[in-house]
Design a protein around this nucleic acid. Structure first.
Length: 336
DNA sequence: CTAGGGTTAG
């Protein structure tokens, strides 16, 4: 179908000339429009559509949620359930949950959770259960996330374990996250690269540096997973934020050039600033400038580091360099 | 592929 291929005008023309349009043709067109960012157009077709079904409503919710219009996504869900007497599917819940996370509203989270429970969708699809764990955590209630997670008992899968570890990491509960990881392995699950990223993040936020390094070894040696850039980023951050700057720098230097990015070095620069290591900051900034010269924040940071060290001449050099290169200043950054 | 999305650094 043209809508899937993204040929919008062709899709619309075919649709106009169709003698036997059914709900599927409407939905194909509407979801195609949503996918291509034509939400307003999709909405007008949606309003025009005679017999909307669950897929139609789900597609509209998804379209709004994807572009961050969380409140509208939620009201569509309310309208669907309360006014139209539709029965949302597991996919509807999955589409809605990022909106609940975005709104960070525990009451809404609990409401949607109860609704999904009552409709049997949590028992029916583990993905719904996993999105409930994630949403409780993102709404700020790690206790509810954890309780719900434990109540899943034997239904937990690798994504459930990974999701709760991610949530615990977000909330700074490093030890608890590590404990889940151990229990997960004992239960016979093989962690994947996402699980390791979550546990690295937990170690980073929880200050568990040596645990984190052990997990790195485990990932590479026991599970034969090569670290990707996100793993490196987490681990560099973990070492750097506790002031183990040399180890962080060495790890960053060991990143294969094909996957290296400026973000890792920027993290390290932030830590150099925090821990007042001017020499390393200069080296790191040189690295950053090899990769990207147009980001104003780097110049501002290096300027401030030099000022903090009393090297006003060098600070001034960076201020000038930033203006020369027309590097972009971001809102909230002091103009130097 | 054919109307659909569970977890992913700073």
């Amino acid at each position: 179908m043209y809508a899937a291929a993204g040929v919008l005008s062709d899709a619309l023309q075919v649709f106009d000339e169709m003698p036997d349009r059914n709900s599927v043709s409407w939905n194909v067109l509407i979801t195609g429009l949503v996918r291509w960012g034509e939400l307003e157009y999709a909405r007008s077709l949606f309003d025009e559509m005679p017999e909307k079904n669950v897929v139609t409503w789900t597609g509209m919710i998804d379209g709004h949620v994807r572009i961050g219009r969380f409140g509208e996504g939620l009201s569509l869900f309310q309208r669907m359930v309360c006014c139209e007497n539709m029965k949302p599917s597991e996919i509807t819940i999955l589409a809605l949950m990022p909106a609940v996370s975005g709104l960070k509203d525990m009451r809404v989270c609990r409401l949607v959770h109860c609704y999904a429970e009552k409709r049997g969708l949590i028992a029916f699809d583990i993905r719904v259960a996993n999105s409930v764990i994630d949403t409780y955590a993102k709404c700020g209630c790690i206790e509810s996330a954890s309780r719900f997670f434990e109540d899943l008992m034997e239904r937990k899968n690798l994504v459930s374990w990974t999701t709760i570890i991610t949530g615990l990491a977000m909330h700074g509960f490093g030890e608890e996250a590590v404990e889940r990881f151990d229990r997960m392995e004992k239960a016979g699950w093989k962690p994947n690269r996402v699980t390791f990223l979550s546990v690295f993040n937990a170690c980073s936020h929880g200050g568990l540096v040596d645990q984190g390094l052990k997990f790195l070894e485990k990932m590479v040696n026991e599970y034969q997973i090569l670290p990707d850039i996100k793993h490196y980023g987490c681990l560099v951050d973990m070492l750097a934020r506790l002031g183990r700057l040399e180890e962080a720098e060495n790890l960053a230097l060991g990143i294969p050039t094909e996957i290296a990015n400026v973000v890792v070095w920027r993290t390290l620069l932030g830590a150099c600033s925090f821990h007042d290591n001017v020499e390393m900051a200069e080296r790191v900034t040189r690295k950053i400038m090899e990769m990207e010269r147009g980001y104003g924040g780097d110049y501002v940071l290096m300027h401030n580091i030099f000022v903090g060290a009393g090297r006003f001449g060098d600070a001034e050099k960076f201020r000038k360099l930033m203006h020369q290169r027309n590097a972009i200043k971001l809102p909230g950054q002091s103009a130097i």
